[in-house]
Design a protein around this nucleic acid. Structure first.
Lengths: 137, 137
DNA sequence: AATCAGATTATAACTATTCTAAAGTAATAA
DNA sequence: TTATTACTTTAGAATAGTTATAATCTGATT
């Protein structure tokens, strides 16, 4: 289980100043045992619940972008009006419940590895993302 | 090779009035032999090039939504700031060139079928989309 | 403690998309 | 045909998510 000193070290090691806003966001994103999926709007609401001092929306965006850049988060391709992020940065895929607008991890054991038998000249694969859209029966 | 009468019939059969704007958009989207990928912005530019009379942006959105609803187009999940659509509505996957902001079809013969060994109670699979992000070597 | 680069903030700006309501047009009935 | 009606187009306003700006603040270093 992580504590705040871990986050301070992690931030500092990445060249990011451990400000109280970033530490708070680390607690929320990386403090639990579960990985989770969120939009900026989700994160913003959670911060509002768990914190007395407000964190400005600009800072939330800045921080999420910084963490993305450092590889602590990854963005998930969903065609919703908002962007979604995942604290689980390992290669894995997702269910997307279109009715509940909610993402669920698919573990590697639950899907065969995707193999692409084609190469595009001058390009290399950056990532392979599978999105399985779910709807109510 | 399709001609305008085909589009008129197609629209009429779908319960959509064959207006000249819709016919023009059909020509652009479905008139060539190749399927293609576009954003509203792309389509808007192509219409501007190929047409003397302008089609309003609202109509372009309306028409794309109508065609989506009728299953003549499908939306592709890419996390870009704009939505992408595909005239190829069969099950297939995509490369996304992040540097050129461009989509490329992956034919079924080029990828093993994706199998998901998990079910979510009360939900059924609506679609499975694989997005292979490409970057410059 | 003073300094300074980097961070936070409120707010403005921007972009994609949706909404609105007025004017136009295709289909239908007379 | 013409009249009527329902659907469509349109310009522009409104909205939502995100990014930019510039002033203030704060953590790290001297």
């Amino acid at each position: 289980m992580s504590n705040n000193l871990d986050f301070v070290a992690k931030l500092r090691n990445s060249g990011l100043r451990p400000t109280k806003q970033r530490i708070k966001i680390c607690e929320i994103l990386f403090g639990g045992k579960e990985t989770f999926h969120f939009s900026i709007n989700d994160l913003s609401k959670i911060i509002a619940q768990k914190t007395n001092e407000k964190i400005s929306l600009a800072t939330i965006y800045n921080t999420v972008h910084a963490f993305l850049g450092k590889g602590y988060l990854k963005q998930i391709a969903v065609n919703s009006e908002q962007s979604y992020y995942d604290t689980n940065v390992s290669d894995h895929h997702h269910f997307y419940d279109v009715d509940k607008d909610q993402l669920i991890d698919i573990h590697d054991s639950e899907v065969e590895p995707v193999k692409i038998n084609r190469k595009i000249p001058g390009k290399k694969i950056k990532s392979i993302e599978v999105l399985v859209k779910l709807q109510n029966i």
